[in-house]
Structure formats: structure tokens, C-alpha cells
Amino acid sequence: MAVAEVLGPGEWLGAELRDSDTWRIPLTEAHRREVLAAVHADSEESFPLPTLAPILHRVRDELTHGRGFVLIQGVPVAEMTERQCERAALGLARQVGAIVPQPPDAQPLMHVRDTGADPSRAKSYQHSGRLGFHSDPTDVVALLCVRPARSGGLSAIVSSVAVHNELVRTRPDLAELLYQPWWHDRRTGDGPDSFYTKPICAVRPDGGVSVAYGPDYLRSAQRGATVPPFTAAQEETMDLLDRLTNDTRFTLTMDLRAGDMQFLNNHVVLHSRTAYEDHPEPSRRRHLLRLWLTTA
């Protein structure tokens, strides 16, 4: 198939946004008090945000029709217990989209902490190793930082639309390969159910492109007994994607601090994380809350 470049606000370069504040939303003291009041409200179902809710609705618009990412700063996590942080994350996220339960136990949110698991076999939220640029399997992923690591753990994002268009311009033969089936690994065990095929790129109903890439999970799929080895063209495609997603022209890095809440549109943004080193005390170790959302 012949593929073409995709135009629109979802195409951006990190080098052009690095010194911009247009993608940051710092909460005012009034917003922070509003979050705390909602957290302490008697009703578990109600999370009233009279002045902050309209801002979060605009976040949803930016995610679905704009650049595809937003960073909210100043969620008052230091003034809340862990359970209250969970409630705040869910209350804020529900203003942006509907919560998608996460496997394996259909939980509304996931705690991102190092469990000492093997990075080559475990889920990305269970270890402290570096993560390749990837997308999560929902419309939006949100991360609320409760505590950063002692060092490392930087978040980096790229416009997958910009990377796609660069391949179309420079290597259209490899760009076409992105629309063909690739083997992926669910990392749910060693049986055949852990492995499945789908394209990396798909055309969206509005004519845009949705990019579902995850090199760590593509490479670990090679352990499957019935999964064929990469072809030379697939290897070349992944090498080029890895070079582009790590190119400083494309990459925008965020050092998430306590109270930062990052929202990403998985269709048009890929994200990664550097390896990190934690504090020895459990109460000071890196802790993020991950939520999956749908905007349909």
C-alpha cells in the first residue's frame, strides 16, 4: 500500500516545544484547595471541581484535537494519604475521559513502583529499567507523580505522527511495513495466548494515523514458540524507529515531580522512561499512579 504524510496539530517536534509553557497547566492555590475539598467530600461518587473542571475539559480537547499531551502541575499530593491520592487521580481523570480497567485484575488505576521484577519479562510498571518509546493500549494514559525517584526516571515523549511522517518522507518502503501485521507480546505467560499480531500503524476514521508501537514487547515476542524471527526489513524498521524516537529533534523530556499529572494521547504520542535509582527507604521510593482512559 502507498502511505502518505498526515497533517495536523498532532505533528510536532520536541526541539520546538522545549522552552514553551503552552503544554503546562500550573494549578492555582484555589484549584489545589478545590482538589483537597473534593478528596475530603463525604460522597465517594462525587468529586466537585467547579473552577477546575472546565480546564480539564479543555485538556480533553487538546488531547483529542491538539498536540496530544498536557502536563498539569501542582496536584497537592503532599497533603494527601495514598488512598486520597488515588481518589484525586481518579476524580481528575474522569473529567478528561472514562476510566478503563487495567489488567490483570481490572483495577481502575495501577501503582507504578519497582518490584524488582525482570525487565525482560515483567510489565513496564513493575521494574526500574529503561523503557523504549511505546504507546499504551487505550486512547489516553495519565500518570500522577506521588514521588519521584532519587535519580533518573525521566519521562520522554515524541509525536508518533512526526516520526511516521519522517519515515514516509525518507523511507516509504519501511513506512508501508508499519501497516502490516507484527507479532506482539502480552507478557501474560509462555503460552500461545501471550502472543498476537496487529499492525503498528492504522488509519483512523478521520484520516489520521494511530501508532501502536512498543519495541520492548515486539522484541520479547520473539520468545514465542510459534513466532517467526524478524525479517531483515523489520529489523531495519525498528532500528530506524528507535533512532528517530531518541533523536533530540523529536524528543521532549519531562522530569516529573511530585504533583505533576501527565496526560498523553496514545494514538499520536509515544512515551518512554529512563532507568532510575530509588531511595533505600520504602516511604521515599518512586511512586506514580497510572490511569487508562477512553475519550470515545
Rank of each mutant, 00 (worst) to 15 (best):
V75A: 10
T295L: 09
L90N: 07
L241E: 07
E166V: 11
E16L: 14
D185Y: 04
R147P: 01
F47G: 05
Q234F: 02
G214P: 03
Q234Y: 01
R171K: 12
Q222T: 07
T197D: 10
A232C: 11
L178Y: 00
L131H: 11
F133M: 15
L240V: 11
H31G: 12
D255N: 15
V203H: 10
R130A: 14
H65P: 02
D278I: 02
L52P: 00
G207R: 11
S20T: 14
D239R: 15
A78E: 13
V146C: 07
R249T: 15
Y179M: 10
M254W: 15
Y217Q: 09
T51M: 13
D136E: 14
N165Q: 12
E176Q: 07
V96W: 05
R187I: 08
L49I: 01
D247K: 05
G214N: 14
L167Y: 03
G153T: 00
L63I: 02
D278Q: 06
E235I: 09
S20N: 10
H279L: 08
A296R: 15
R273V: 01
Q95H: 15
L36N: 08
G97C: 06
Y213Q: 09
R121Y: 08
V112H: 09
E79I: 04
Q102I: 04
E281D: 10
H111A: 15
I72E: 01
H271T: 04
S283I: 12
H164T: 12
R113S: 09
P282A: 02
G10P: 06
P229T: 08
L270V: 11
A162N: 05
Q84E: 15
Q107R: 15
T295A: 13
D190N: 15
P282R: 01
R67Q: 03
T226P: 04
P228A: 07
F263M: 07
P54Y: 05
K123T: 10
G74H: 00
A202R: 12
V211D: 05
P215Q: 04
L178H: 00
S151M: 12
R273H: 02
H279P: 01
D190C: 13
P181M: 13
V3P: 00
G208Y: 00
P50M: 07
D19F: 01
V146G: 02
T115C: 13
R32I: 03
G129R: 10
R169A: 01
T237Y: 03
K198S: 13
P228H: 06
V141W: 12
S194I: 07
V100F: 08
D260Y: 05
L143R: 01
H267L: 11
P119L: 08
Y196P: 09
Q73D: 02
I200M: 03
E86C: 14
L270M: 10
A122H: 06
P50D: 10
